[in-house]
Design a binder for these strands. Structure first.
Lengths: 188, 188
DNA sequence: ACTTGACCGTATTCGTCATTTGGTCAATTT
DNA sequence: AAATTGACCAAATGACGAATACGGTCAAGT
């Protein structure tokens, strides 16, 4: 295994366990079994190393979303499937949990920026699906950028902010609400 | 003017300027021109004093929402008018800005709880409007609690989190998006 | 009877010094 | 000659203890 990959793997591990701020380059070097200065032959800074990890996460998210789509299913069902897959990944991927907590607790600039980039990738995916949906007649014409934002924020709020203990939301609850509100609308 | 009201007014002023945490009872006493011990003849604790201010804010929010409704306008236009009024108030009322910032920066428990109570009052208003709308046939049957949550979270995200400098959102943009997505739906 | 502000235990803040960190580069290794 | 290392450095961060502040209390004063 080459050194660059060892360093990237070590960094991913450390960011996952300790977050961005508490990850030291000394520690990354030790995990990777290289001298600290060797890191700087591949990456100009801690931030650039983190950027590589963020790019990785973005690729994973996009891949997950694409793989959740099933050509035989309806537009909104697919959108729900993709979003659910992505947000489920976000709930399980250790490094994302870590970074989310760090941003919430400390507002670390690099972590904040990294998570923002990932969110933008998700929004971009939704926007493209909306545009495709309009082209092939699956949905009516709308402002794709704005609607993507609305859908995403609502979805995230449902998954992360809905806190009624007597009434937990199931995956089906969310899919149905999604269909009811965004697909069908509330007008008689 | 009675002492109790002086104390409440002084507290509102101090919470507005310094937030919950940095507001001291000594300072409130000085603004109100009373001895510190006098505060405790009316309120058993700092939290109880804060609670009175929160109740006030909730009353204001409810009143604003109700006053924005116009019987001659359509359901969603009214809902947008009420939400816009409430969130505009939230953007301008000094104490709410202060508390929001404090929760974001420090997560002060009392401030967090207070803002949550205000949010619940807004959600309650939306839910009631949805229920009334269903009763009089303005909207189709739906899960009022869940839909109120979705509408509110989307609205807040549009007002507070939409950050595209090349494309600021106007009141009309939001009203139209609201109508397009929640009222009409996206299905052909 | 009501009001006050000194007092108290606890919590918080602040200044200081010790330690750590990201990045550098001379020395060492390959 | 090229690649690697880890000691070093200035700046940043953290730990610690003393000083100060805070919410709540109540004896003294009005």
């Amino acid at each position: 295994m080459d050194r660059r990959q060892s360093i990237v793997d070590a960094a991913r591990q450390s960011f996952s366990l300790y977050g961005y701020k508490a990850t030291t380059m000394d520690h990354v070097a030790k995990i990777a079994n290289v001298g600290k200065g060797t890191i700087y032959t591949f990456f100009s800074s801690k931030e650039e190393l983190f950027e590589v990890i963020v790019q990785e996460l973005i690729r994973n998210v996009k891949s997950l979303a694409m793989n959740a789509l099933d050509p035989k299913k309806a537009f909104f069902e697919n959108l729900h499937r993709a979003l659910f897959a992505v947000l489920e990944y976000r709930q399980e991927e250790e490094i994302l949990l870590r970074l989310t907590r760090e941003v919430r607790d400390f507002g670390t600039p690099a972590a904040t920026e990294g998570l923002k980039r990932i969110e933008e990738a998700i929004l971009g995916f939704i926007k493209r699906q909306l545009e495709l949906g309009m082209e092939n007649g699956s949905i009516l014409k709308c402002d794709a950028e704005l609607v993507a934002f609305m859908i995403f924020k609502t979805y995230v709020a449902l998954l992360l902010e809905w806190n009624h203990e007597e009434r937990a939301l199931t995956n089906e609850d969310i899919a149905m609400a999604f269909q009811r509100v965004f697909a069908e609308g509330l007008n008689p």
